[in-house]
Design a binder for these strands. Structure first.
Lengths: 262, 262
DNA sequence: CTCTTCAAGACCTCTTGAGGAGTTGTAGCC
DNA sequence: GGCTACAACTCCTCAAGAGGTCTTGAAGAG
């Protein structure tokens, strides 16, 4: 037995996919749809919720229901790590040019806004294992979000960890009143003599929690990409662990693998 | 004014996150919850749908509502490309040992099941651009899905493209009655003298379409990861383009980037 | 001309009520 | 003992209706 709300959803979905209803176009009101399909308004709403959860439409209170416009994603390129490394040895003042983030997204450094928060904490189970250190080891934790100045919504939430003793040689890094990690993590690691050799990135995707949806300004019908980045130095030690949450509708990850020649 | 269904959802979400309701545990019935929160059953259902869409619970018809158990993901490692390359030159018969896919997931080759379908088609806009060839160029298209024999659901949907003229030197590859691409794409490219030099992979994530949800057996509250893989040979030509759809709740991607030494 | 007010139209929430359909365990029949 | 039928409990669908909030544009006041 065909379910009424699925019949309606299937019909609307087909018309959107076929391009009969273009991006940004308004759908008939719920009342009109109810009349057209000879169903109650709640049943129509049920169908619309389905399409909204699929990311096909936007329902705007007081305005109407619209076909969603696809977004053009910002690219996060794994070559950023090499770029950042190349930049890390240069002194802070002389390298206003290009950094890793700007290279990917095409945004200038000026257009990037950061909000940072700074804490000191002890490594607990999961993190201790990630760093390969005993539980209770002192870590530095930094929470921040990157945002493009033209857009209101942030495009990443980041929590980054370092082992305190590893970077204690540079007291600036422990001063909470200063900008934390100025110049990027690789630059700061360089100031204490650490060279990053290899970066491992693991990621999965899932629907956002309500907190993530609010922080990243995600509409229904989108996903988040969860990225765990682990940096190793030339001796194989873990020197940085970062958890990044990215908006699935605005992010594309680009990874290049070079193969050895025959 | 707090919305009733959000109040209920928040309360249940908190209790699940806090571990008061463990994985697999059954929640009270909709009727019981309605009575407890002094709300109607549809309002409770509204709250449950929210949690279901977040991937926190499973609603099973006739049985009840249960806290979802987290799944342990299969890992897809980008070193697979190097492994596959190493294997590509060996003759088919003498390399029953390990292949790329088995290395990641820990599954033996015997446990992997493929369903393949074979077509010939002309390159249209998007694909022609991806390959850097004129529109209308003849392509070979293969659709298949990989599945683990122990699990009923497939763990990837793949559509792979090759340029017909590029591989015409090996007539086996054009024979639709034979197993398409036996031994893997890199092996087959090797039989016509093509060496893969570099692999580019682009990822995004979004909620599944109904078709994807059915094919991958995805419950509500999960995402799909979309992968566009492009392989380049040593002369910079695009030799293979593959689109892969992966279930977000069962997939973890691992990517290692090696940096140049100072 | 500008600002404020208001009404219309849109989506949103919640209720009550009635069935429908999947699952399981039990009582009863053979 | 084994099979069958049924009852109880579950979630699922749909309807009709009342009231709410949000947005926009038009009418009216200044």
């Amino acid at each position: 037995m065909p379910k009424a709300y699925e019949v309606i959803a299937d019909d609307l979905r087909r018309s959107i996919r076929a391009g009969e209803r273009g991006p940004g176009e308004r759908l008939p009101s719920e009342a009109d749809l109810a009349h057209h399909y000879r169903r109650s308004v709640p049943t129509v709403q049920n169908a619309l919720r389905l399409l909204s959860d699929e990311g096909l439409i936007d329902r705007r209170h007081g305005l109407g229901t619209f076909v969603r416009r696809p977004r053009t994603p910002a690219v996060r390129d794994n070559r950023r790590h090499q770029w950042e490394k190349d930049r890390a040895r240069r002194p802070l003042a002389t390298r206003a040019e290009t950094g890793a983030t700007e290279r990917d997204t095409g945004l200038r450094a000026d257009d990037l806004v950061f909000h940072a928060e700074y804490r000191e904490r002890e490594a607990s189970g999961e993190l201790a294992e990630a760093f390969g250190v005993p539980e209770g080891t002192a870590l530095l934790q930094r929470d921040f979000r990157t945002r493009h100045s033209a857009e209101p919504a942030p495009f990443s939430l980041v929590t980054s960890y370092l082992v305190r003793d590893m970077i204690a040689a540079n007291p600036d890094l422990l001063d909470e009143t200063k900008e934390p990690w100025p110049g990027g993590t690789q630059h700061q690691l360089h100031t204490v003599g650490i060279e990053v050799d290899r970066v491992e990135e693991r990621f999965t995707a899932r629907p956002p929690t309500p907190e993530e949806a609010a922080a990243l300004d995600l509409p229904p019908g989108t996903s988040v990409i969860l990225l765990r980045k682990t940096s190793y130095d030339t001796e194989g030690r873990v020197v940085d662990v970062s958890d990044v949450t990215l908006p699935g509708d605005r992010t594309e990850l680009l990874f290049t693998t070079r193969l050895e020649r025959w």
